[in-house]
Write a protein that binds this DNA or RNA. Structure first.
Length: 274
DNA sequence: ATACTCCCCTGAGAGC
DNA sequence: TGCTCTCAGGGGAGTA
């Protein structure tokens, strides 16, 4: 499941492999992937040249001359760049025909991904990004910002980390890793945290996400990044998906529970509820 | 405002 | 072998 580091890996890969292609035509095989009328999507995008590649949170932003193509991979979305002679498989739902003869293919087994094209404008004005807070790697992210947003909330801290409205880019895997590194039980109400805890969250969020980007992201379950590239950060995960294995700090068994409806891994010894 | 539940989807894995 | 059932999950929508 792509989170911020995996999305960054995809963006970097697309940038390196595609350069600045013009989109000549688009085939859509599953309409629900497109988050607007199909005709509008095609009309706005065909003929545009991709100028710049970046992301905000888990959203991919492909900046063209007049429009921005905004994509969310959700659970299993991925891109492939292939020659048009290679047969399309059954999970390919959108094909962008490029002027260099290659195709950018959007592949998504679960069909949860979404994409939308919007007129180029300030990031804060895109409908697709309306609900997103500060990027988790934004240099302006600090403990005071999180404290202001969360200190009066009784929501479990893991729920806060997953909520994209205040800080965006963190998903289920990294939320577990961040809680572990901060010695916080994922169920701890945000209101019980000290400013020191919030400083820890900022520090470890940055450390873990940047480390994951350096490893090319995490490959877990069915998620692999585009072009068959496989991330290696799963080798560095401390608790996520490690139920019944020993905690790397204290040796006690890691347990799996459910927090805000999400499978959650923690060390009950190292992460006590406050 | 906050907290649920459901929905979108498919494949993997368990149980029989 | 093959069937049915359950589960996984990001985020939006709808409801209490």
């Amino acid at each position: 499941m792509p989170e911020l580091p995996e999305v960054q890996t995809v963006v970097s890969t697309l940038q390196n492999q595609l350069n600045h292609p013009t989109i000549q035509d688009i085939d859509i095989y599953w309409d629900n992937i497109i988050n607007q009328p199909i005709d509008e999507f095609k009309k706005m995008l065909i003929g545009e040249t991709i100028k710049n590649y970046r992301r905000k949170g888990k959203y991919i932003l492909l900046e063209c001359e007049h429009v921005m193509l905004i994509i969310h991979l959700r659970m299993e979305g991925k891109f492939y760049i292939l020659d048009s002679s290679i047969p399309k498989d059954k999970h390919t739902h959108v094909v962008f025909h490029l002027d260099d003869g290659r195709e950018l293919r959007y592949h998504d087994v679960r069909k949860f991904g979404k994409m939308r094209v919007e007129i180029l404008r300030d990031d804060s004005e895109y409908i697709s990004l309306k609900e997103t807070g500060m990027d988790a790697l934004d240099e302006n992210l600090n403990a005071v910002y999180l404290y202001d947003a969360w200190h009066d909330k009784n929501t479990p801290i893991k729920g806060c980390l997953l909520d994209q409205h205040i800080i965006c880019g963190i998903g289920n895997i990294y939320a577990d890793e961040i809680c572990f590194s901060c010695n916080l039980h994922p169920c701890t109400p945000a209101s019980h945290l000290t400013i020191h805890d919030y400083e820890n969250i900022v520090y470890h969020t940055r450390r873990i996400l940047e480390g994951a980007i350096r490893s090319g992201g995490t490959t877990i379950r069915s998620y692999t990044s585009s072009l068959g590239v496989t991330g290696l950060f799963q080798l560095k995960l401390k608790v996520h998906q490690k139920a019944n294995e020993p905690c790397p700090i204290c040796g006690n068994k890691i347990m799996k529970i459910k927090v805000v409806q999400r499978g959650t891994y923690l060390c009950p010894q190292c992460q006590k509820i406050k």
